[in-house]
Simulated assay, not measured.
Amino acid sequence: MTDLHTLQNAHWQVGILPQTGAGIAFGRVRYSGNWLDLLRPTAEADYENSSNNSSFIMMPWANRIRDGLLKIGHQSYQLEITKDDGTARHGDVRKRPWHVAESDETHIRMTFDSRDFEDVNFPFYFSAEAIYHLEADAFIWTLSLTNEDDQPFPAGFGYHPYFVRTAQMPLLEIPTEQEFVLTDAMATGAPQPISDVVDFRQLRGLEDGVDINHLLTGRDMTKPIRLVYPQWHTELQMQADPIFKQVVVYTDMHTPSVAVEPQTNANDGFNLYEQGIAEAGVFVLQPGETASGTVRLTTQPYEGS
C-alpha cells in the first residue's frame, strides 16, 4: 500500500508520496470553507505512477537528454532511454522510494542515496534531500543534490507540477524575456527573444485549442510566476530561487491541467553545456558539494483589474 503523508494547516492541504519519488499527490487550498484542488489531483490508483502525480521531482537532470547520450568532455555515457521518444527523460529519482527522515503535521523531510540502488540511470553517485513544509499561506519546496562520487559531474534538477485547468483556464503571468527553440521537446541552440504564443510577461489566458510545450528563460527574478483563477477569486504565486533558470510551460490536452515547471537546466541542457552555451543552466558539482533551491507557492485573493 502506498505511503501517503498529509500535511495541513489553515491554508493548505497537501499529500506527499515518499515511495513514489517524494512526489505530490494533491495540493489544495481553502475556498469558501472547502478544500479546492489547485494542483491536478492524483487518483489513488495512480499514486505509484509518478507521471500521473500532481508533481514529481526531476533529478539528477531535468527534462530530456538527446538519445540518452551523456557527454562529459572526452567521455560519453549511454543512459537508458524511454521507448516512446528515445531520450533519457526526467532523471531517475521520480520512481524510487525515498526515506522519510522526519515529519509532522506541516513538514516532511525525505532523503535519497543512489548508492542504495544498483540500477540508477546515472554514472555517478549522488544523494538528495527533499523538504516540503507549510508556513501560513505558503507551500514551500526545497530540493538539494550532493555529489557523493570521487570526481566532479554535471547535473540539474527541477519540479514538474501540474495545475488544474478550468473552463476559464487559468490566467498566466511568467516574467521571462527569452525562449529556447525546441525540436522534439529539446533545445537546439542558444535562447531567442520570446515568441508571441508564449509571451506571458503580462497576465493573460491560454488560447483555446492551442497546444503549448515551450521552454522559457531569461526570468526576471524579482517577479513571481502567477496563475490566476478568476472564478475562484484566487491567485497562486510561484517564487523560485535563481538556480531555477528555466520554466517549461506545457498544456496537457489529455487531462485538464497546465504544467509550469521550474528547472535548473534546459531541455537537453547537457549537450548545450558541452557546446559552450552559457544559458544551458547545467551546474558542475565537485566531490562533496551540494546544490539546492527552493520554490515557494503562495495564495492570495484576486479581484481582477
Rank of each mutant, 00 (worst) to 15 (best):
M1I: 04
M1H: 10
H5G: 03
T6V: 12
L7M: 02
Q13W: 04
G15P: 07
G15W: 08
A22P: 00
A22K: 00
I24N: 05
I24D: 02
I24R: 08
I24P: 02
R28V: 01
V29T: 06
N34G: 08
N34P: 02
W35F: 08
L39Q: 02
E44K: 12
E44V: 12
S55Y: 01
F56R: 15
A62N: 14
D67M: 12
L69R: 15
K71F: 04
I72V: 15
D85C: 09
T87W: 06
R89G: 01
H90Y: 03
H99C: 01
H99L: 12
S103T: 10
I108E: 08
R109K: 13
D113V: 02
Y125H: 15
Y125S: 13
F126Q: 06
S127M: 03
E129I: 13
A130S: 12
Y132Q: 10
Y132F: 14
A136E: 09
A138V: 04
L143M: 10
Q151E: 14
F157G: 04
H160C: 05
P161A: 03
Y162R: 14
T166N: 11
A167W: 00
E173G: 02
I174H: 02
P175C: 10
T176R: 11
T176D: 01
T176G: 02
E179M: 15
A190E: 05
P191I: 01
P193A: 13
S195L: 02
V197N: 05
R201Y: 08
L203D: 03
R204W: 00
R204T: 02
L206K: 00
D211A: 14
L215K: 04
L216N: 00
D220G: 03
R226Q: 14
W232Y: 15
H233T: 00
T234Q: 14
T234N: 09
T234I: 08
L236C: 07
A240C: 07
A240M: 08
D241W: 08
Q246K: 13
M253S: 15
M253A: 13
V258P: 07
A259T: 00
V260E: 07
Q263R: 01
T264H: 08
A266C: 10
N267M: 05
D268Y: 03
G269L: 09
G276W: 06
L285K: 07
T290L: 11
S292E: 06
R296H: 07
S305A: 10
